[in-house]
């Protein structure tokens, strides 16, 4: 009762990365609230997936299996999750801010008449004093998110409705397994009893999901290029540096829009969020929407011809100059000094 529930997505035979990130975060919130973490997982054949969920801190796994639920569908998932929330009365529920989470969570929020905050980048527990009614609300979920095109950061609360619902961006929370792993319990839910026939009115005719080709999110070192790199050919230089460093290459939206680099490598508010050990920014001005996706990097090196480029104010090292002269030098001296 009044625990934290994480809605977990699956892809094929594993739990989605973002769901494991959320379980990890839920664990730290649950410590503060002295409650437990539970997971909801829905699909066709979910055998064995509970182990991943236990390993990330879930003590109860709510499972709903049905042959019609091989792929995500809005209406049956809404019915099932709403039913679980009604029965279990969690205080907080988290969803990934993915196409699935952003499709499902609002439908659930509307059905339960509960507040929902989209695309959170940070979650905290705290109190709230309401002047008008002279009431203090204890232990609310602070739902922190960028708004207004990334120009402001807002803290949102839902004092009066339960559960407190939020979707959370992929990649902003760190995933960590528990140690030791405590085996939890499975609770099965009967889909045919919960989902109505009408819930299956939308028919999936075809799906083409590509395996993610690049994994910049998982990379410890990222060499990123912006519009200042100037061309697709010039990006080869960044790929060479990435190659010797064992890094991945990312880009800004301006670089993606100009066709210098593929969309799946875009970093920032409308791309992926990364937090590598080292971020080398080449020809990137550092607009707020780009910084939103990389400022958690442990170390940032900026290479820019403009000494006053905004990115320099969050960088640890600034090299003022033309990337096309500097990057080859970095490659040369890395080769010389490594091993």
């Amino acid at each position: 009762m009044n625990n934290i529930i994480v809605y977990c997505e699956t892809n094929g035979n594993s739990v989605a990365e973002v769901s494991l990130e959320l379980l990890t975060k839920a664990r730290s919130l649950s410590g503060q609230l002295k409650v437990q973490v539970e997971a909801v997982i829905i699909g066709n054949d979910l055998k064995g997936l509970e182990d991943q969920l236990y390993a990330h801190g879930a003590s109860i796994v709510h499972k709903a299996e049905d042959s019609r639920l091989e792929f995500y569908q809005t209406l049956p998932h809404t019915s099932i999750v709403v039913e679980i929330f009604r029965k279990e009365e969690p205080q907080i529920c988290l969803f990934g801010a993915t196409p699935v989470g952003r499709d499902l969570a609002p439908r659930i929020a509307s059905s339960l008449k509960c507040g929902l905050t989209a695309d959170c980048t940070s979650l905290e527990i705290g109190d709230h004093y309401e002047k008008k009614t002279d009431t203090t609300f204890k232990d609310l979920l602070y739902q922190i998110r960028p708004a207004f095109g990334g120009n402001i950061v807002a803290t949102i609360i839902n004092p009066g409705t339960r559960p407190q619902l939020a979707t959370v961006r992929e990649g902003v929370m760190k995933r960590e397994e528990t140690n030791p792993v405590v085996k939890g319990k499975i609770k099965n839910w009967n889909v045919s009893e919960i989902a109505k026939k009408d819930d299956f009115v939308i028919e999936i005719i075809e799906r083409q999901i590509e395996e993610k080709r690049v994994n910049i999110k998982g990379s410890q070192i990222i060499v990123a290029g912006g519009y200042g790199v100037g061309s697709k050919e010039n990006f080869n230089l960044l790929f060479q540096l990435a190659d010797v460093l064992g890094a991945e290459v990312g880009g800004t939206r301006a670089a993606v829009d100009a066709g210098y680099i593929d969309h799946d490598r875009q970093i920032g508010q409308t791309g992926v969020t990364v937090r590598p050990k080292l971020y080398i920014a080449c020809g990137i001005s550092g607009q707020i929407q780009h910084r939103a996706g990389m400022m958690e990097s442990s170390m940032i090196i900026s290479i820019n011809t403009d000494a006053s480029a905004p990115i320099n104010s969050i960088a640890d090292y600034v090299i003022v100059g033309n990337f096309s002269e500097i990057v080859p030098k970095m490659i040369k001296y890395y080769k010389k000094n490594s091993k």
């Binding site: 008449k113 929902l116 402001i152 003022v320």
Partner: peptide, 20 residues
Amino acid sequence: PTKVKKIENVVFKANEAMVI
């Protein structure tokens, strides 16, 4: 049900970068 508790503007935190 949602209330805005706080709004912060994203301002540049000037950082002591090492210039190379």
